[in-house]
Amino acid sequence: MQKLTKEIQDTAKKLLEENKVDLVVGFAKGSLPLRSTPYFARTAEQAEELVWNQFCENNLANYLKKREEKVAVVAKGCDIRAIVALIKENQINRDNLYIIGVTCQGMIDRNKADELVNGKEILETETNGEEIVLKGKDLEQKAKVEELLYDTCTRCAYGNPVIYDELIGEEQPAKEPNFEDIEKFEALSAEERAQYLAKEMEKCIRCYACRNACPMCYCDTCFVDESTPQWISKRANSAKDNLIFQGVRVFHQLGRCADCGACERACPMGINLSLLTRKGVKDVKETYGYEAGLNPDDKPVLSDFETDDPQPFLMKE
């Protein structure tokens, strides 16, 4: 990680010093254990603040939309999928973007770490390769990094960036996308599924962190904020309306969602949002053989129509 950090800093410094870019978007050390924080470096000096570690959980594609200046971004696999999708949607101008791709083994889920230490407070961490030590007052807990990764990361098959201008880090072994979580959910009865979703949606406080953290959510006015007409209630204590909010969000993401999990990571209430987003990802993959943000040259799947497209929603085939 130290090595990656150094390489990122050097690359960023060089880009800034040579005036190739005006800004490098990356991560800096966070103020809390298990956290890094998005960082905007505009000078070579600021580039020294950049870091890379397993706490770089945010999707930085979010900060690249409609930028006027020349920007470089330190981006992991899923950030780059979102970038590819956003280029297709004219939100990012590829000519003004320099991608410092970083290969990724996954990011650590701070909630999993908290669960592991059972309510104790983690004050410090130490990573030694495959192992992480969580330290605090009367606490020293070792764990395998692999076991603490976000679920979206363990199931992700795109740790190797699909496009980049420069690649940092070692190539990751190829993986197959894995939808076991969704298959398990699909196997439940309708009633069980409804119950589970109701329980999750009851927790929602409508802070919209999920929507705002999502690189692909960028409508000028989100339908939940619309006042004429008002589509859904603004009350947070209505689990039904909360589900409509998430449901419509997922529909708007069909064929666009980069499966990065940024929405779920942002949610302060720990709601299982990737269950919904990944169901969408899985359905689009099964129906059209399409996954968003993998191929810079294809058309977004729902903007494309072939006469032999399957239409299971129109008639039973």
Partner: peptide, 23 residues
Amino acid sequence: YEKCLGCGACTYLCPTCHCFDIA
């Protein structure tokens, strides 16, 4: 503000924040 997402997490979870909407 550059990295801020403009969400409601900090204000909704703050014990002193009191802003409200009427609908």
